[in-house]
């Protein structure tokens, strides 16, 4: 868009915020010795710059409240996922009904779809394998007796609700 004198400051703000976040992460992992802080500062800015190449500013804006409730749900789902598989493993006859499910996604190819696939791979019984231009995601399911596609559609809706609308470019 032609904005005259007003420049788009979003990338600069994003670079600053992401650098700060990475730096905080560095401090947590590496501690607060002066020479570590110097290395951390450089690393944080490089990491923030790289992350802007991969996920441009504003593409993945989260709604904080919904993100938090999805995270709480995710914690519970990882308990269910772990216990489900552990129970199958520890049952002598191993009640597995694995198979492939084709799931049609509403998410465009790219970061958002990839985020959903990553999220789905941590959910109980589902493991996305690949996707293509036809909006199909091939999902490996541990138990084909479950309504896998319906469950994934619910999760996709939850995840979409967390992501703010993409600002019109």
């Amino acid at each position: 868009m032609e904005g005259g004198a007003s420049k788009d400051t979003r990338p600069a703000v994003a670079l600053l915020l992401r650098s700060a976040a990475y730096f905080l992460f560095w401090v947590v992992l590496a501690g607060t010795a002066a020479k570590d802080l110097a290395a951390g500062l450089v690393t944080a800015v490089i990491a923030a710059w790289l992350s802007l190449q991969l996920i441009p500013a504003g593409e993945m804006t989260l709604r904080p409240g919904r993100a938090l409730s999805l995270f709480a749900r995710f914690l519970w789902q990882s308990v269910v996922a772990g216990v489900t598989v552990a129970r199958i493993v520890l049952t002598p006859r191993m009640p597995l009904r694995p198979g492939m499910v084709a799931y049609r996604t509403a998410l465009p190819p790219g970061n958002r779809r990839f985020l959903f696939m990553t999220y789905a791979s941590l959910l109980p019984g589902t493991l996305p394998t690949r996707t293509d231009e036809t909006d199909l995601i091939e999902v490996h399911a541990l138990d084909c007796g479950q309504p896998v596609a319906e469950l994934l559609a619910e999760e996709e809706a939850r995840l979409s609700a967390v992501l703010a609308e993409r600002p019109s470019a």
Partner: peptide, 10 residues
């Protein structure tokens, strides 16, 4: 992969 990701994560 299911076994590794889900069970070990938990």
């Amino acid at each position: 992969l299911h076994a590794l990701t889900k069970v070990d994560n938990l």
